[in-house]
Design a protein around this nucleic acid. Structure first.
Lengths: 216, 216
DNA sequence: TAGATTGTTAATCGATTAACAATC
DNA sequence: TAGATTGTTAATCGATTAACAATC
């Protein structure tokens, strides 16, 4: 039964469910109960059932959940079926890591363009794609109805570029730079701040006895 | 006044405080009140004062907080002063991005070695460092008292390598692979799962009206 | 059928916010 | 001093967990 408001915490947990279900599928597991999955993930069966019940009834009494079916449902909740388009801005090592290795297909996202400003990179080939000049980002976004911009250029340019992208009608920004970009009414931002994660790790290195919930 | 138990949520917020304080410092702001900082970060002044009060009394009535002093305090809580050592395993594009660009110094971490298995990479120079063969990781970790291993190799090897690192006495793993590694009694794991973040962004692209708390 | 496990309601727990005396 | 703002206690709110009837 659909509930009105879905909490951010629930959304944050969905990708993790998906990863564990992927593993189960790879191990040829067909069905799983909330109890088993909870043990595997280090969370309670109650939480799992609560989370899923925000979106519908995916299980069956006495049986549990069908792994593939559940993956499909969660994938749809997360919009994998929306077929979003994305561009990468910045073709340094991080940009290349993403362009070359990130499994966009698995998430229904298509990489449609890659951009940089360095004269020796513009026009060159990176993993089979031609690097475009960043001056042409706005035109490209408008002409190709681009959903997501992936920022991997130096952080000092991020705010300016984000503004240009917003003006050009981008819908989401996946921010890998140090810059603190904020979601607005028009543009959603999700940031991957490497340093945040390292600092949390660093904290727990010196505070070993404290409990740290599994969020990985 | 030190409280017994510090919640994980508080720890997760500390790096974000640090980032905003960094920005303030860069803008030559000397003092800030919880009210101002809260407005800036999109959280309540109450939460800020509660968070800080877990660790001590960093402010002054009628004045607020001294930006630099507060940064120093939070840095110490996060163990920046511990002088940790780290190695990078995997010198592909992601490894290189981290080796070349990540500001380890700012976090009191020293990069002491980089590793790969590819014959054409072992022995070569990456940002002024010589790539060592991954077979020598255990010896290196033992001999150099290494705190943190940064995993950027293909995910299929991650579990094996993590086990070897654990046996060799590593204290923390900063995991960039797809693998679901778990913290144990001996080894802390913090993972950066790019895909989790993209999926959350993707979700909010299709659910624009829902509120999404600022966590960036 | 009997056993297992769901979806959901109620109870608990913890985290966030509000309020305010203390004090710079 | 008067105004501002802290640290902290109390109140509220929301999230997690427990319990259980429904049912496969």
């Amino acid at each position: 039964m659909k509930k009105a408001k879905i909490s951010h915490n629930v959304i944050l947990r969905l990708p993790r469910y998906l990863r564990f279900l992927e593993d189960l599928k790879d191990s040829s597991v067909v069905r799983i109960s909330s109890g088993e999955l909870g043990r595997l993930m280090g969370i309670t069966a109650s939480q799992i059932r609560q989370d899923f019940s925000c979106f519908g009834e995916f299980g069956q009494q006495g049986y549990g959940y069908n792994v593939e079916m559940l993956m499909k449902e969660i994938g749809e909740i997360l919009g994998i079926d929306k077929g979003r388009t994305a561009i990468v801005i910045g073709t340094g090592n991080l940009g290349r890591a993403i362009i070359g290795k990130f499994p966009f297909d698995s998430f229904g996202v298509t990489l449609t363009g890659i951009f940089d400003v360095a004269p020796d990179l513009v026009g060159s080939d990176v993993f089979g794609r031609t690097v475009r000049h960043s001056d042409t980002i706005e035109d490209f976004v408008r002409e190709n109805n681009t959903d997501i911009a992936i920022l991997t250029m130096p952080g000092s340019f991020a705010k300016t570029v984000a503004g240009r992208l917003s003006d050009a009608g981008i819908k989401g920004i996946w921010n890998f730079t140090h810059a603190d970009l904020k979601s607005t009414g028009n543009v959603r931002v999700q940031s991957v701040h490497f340093s945040d994660s390292l600092l949390v790790l660093n904290y727990y290195l010196s505070n070993e006895n404290l409990e740290e919930p599994d969020k990985n």
